[in-house]
């Protein structure tokens, strides 16, 4: 038992180092190229030069938002798959992200709430409301039904969100890029005010990891083992809303991270959530950060991370839906 565990820990450490290098590199990529050593200098020993200001005030919040939102959404996806027994469950497809985005736009447009420390509560409320609605519409033994309910809620909320933005030009300017999952233009104070909720939810997710393994055996088995399902499903839902709500507040409704990352992770780790969740955390951060940075590095163009992720995630979704045994029945 110890040898695969140790190998797993080494791999996790390597991935974390990779993420760190990627993070420093990403902070150098953009309109003004900054070398990795210069980025490191700006982070540890800033002297107030232009490069320091760009790194600390423009690039750092953007990279932080990508890393933490990606980690949160991948972990949230894995937990939702355990809760529902549905391989296609993830906050984007099941409408949780759309609910959070809708509520944030409503709060901006109708309630004139602008501070991120208040908007985050709108995001939580919207995420919870949409999750409850999708579950009420789609719960059942057929996994496709839940996804259909998610698609319906996502498209409806997306349309209403778009309508509000069309009528409210000022709100549109504020959030146009955010609703497409763009990490551009994040302020450090916005990121800082969301970070405690996001990190708190991640810590809870990791602490509860063992519960998700029992839950993933299905409700009959989990209850036979003595798991208090009402309690643990409630706590799991709370963690998912915390993760997805804060990720959306930070980075917009990024789809597919919660689908692609957990399934790729499982190919390596198997089905024990104590191993799945740490890998999802790192993997989600890497994928989201790469999706934000690579278009800039390769073509010098700013493509919202949400759009890059959809390009990568949509074919993956089709492959998964076609190959998974549970969906063929």
């Amino acid at each position: 038992m110890t040898r695969p565990g140790a190998a797993s820990a080494v791999l996790l450490l390597l991935l974390s180092c990779g993420l760190l290098v990627l993070t420093v590199w990403a902070m150098g990529v953009g309109a003004s190229e900054i070398s990795m050593s210069r980025v490191a200098q700006a982070l540890w020993n800033p002297s107030g030069e232009r490069a320091d200001i760009v790194v600390l005030q423009v690039r750092l919040p953007r990279v932080l938002a990508g890393v933490t939102a990606g980690a949160a959404l991948a972990v949230a996806g894995a937990i939702m798959q355990a809760m529902t027994g549905n391989p296609l469950a993830e906050p984007g497809l099941l409408g949780v992200n759309a609910g959070a985005a809708f509520a944030v736009v409503c709060a901006l447009s109708f309630l004139d709430i602008t501070g991120m420390s208040h908007l985050i509560w709108a995001a939580f409320t919207g995420a919870a409301g949409a999750a409850a609605l999708v579950y009420a519409l789609g719960a059942g033994p057929n996994p496709v039904r839940l996804v259909l309910a998610g698609v319906v809620v996502t498209s409806f909320l997306g349309a209403v969100t778009m309508a509000i933005l069309m009528l409210d030009v000022q709100a549109l300017d504020t959030v146009r890029f955010w609703t497409a999952g763009s990490l551009k233009g994040r302020q450090l104070e916005d990121v800082a005010s969301v970070l405690p909720y996001l990190l708190g939810s991640l810590v809870l997710a990791l602490l509860f990891a063992g519960q998700f393994t029992a839950m993933s055996l299905g409700s009959t088995v989990a209850r036979g083992l003595g798991q208090n399902l009402a309690l643990w499903r409630g706590l799991a839902a709370l963690v998912v809303v915390g993760l997805a709500g804060s990720a959306v507040a930070m980075a917009g409704p990024l789809g597919f991270v919660g689908l692609v990352v957990p399934h790729m992770v499982r190919m390596r780790t198997g089905a024990e959530y104590r191993r799945i969740l740490p890998y999802c955390l790192i993997g989600g951060a890497v994928l989201t950060l790469a999706s934000d940075t690579l278009p800039r590095a390769l073509w010098g163009r700013d493509v919202p991370a949400g759009i890059t992720l959809a390009f990568l995630g949509a074919p993956f979704f089709i492959w998964l839906a076609r190959s998974h045994g549970a969906l063929r029945s």
Partner: peptide
Amino acid sequence: GTKALARRVGLLAQTASAPDGLT
């Protein structure tokens, strides 16, 4: 409690299926 009951009574469910890859 649910755990106290499970320590006394165990259930083997019909057609239980393990998640892919669980050893």
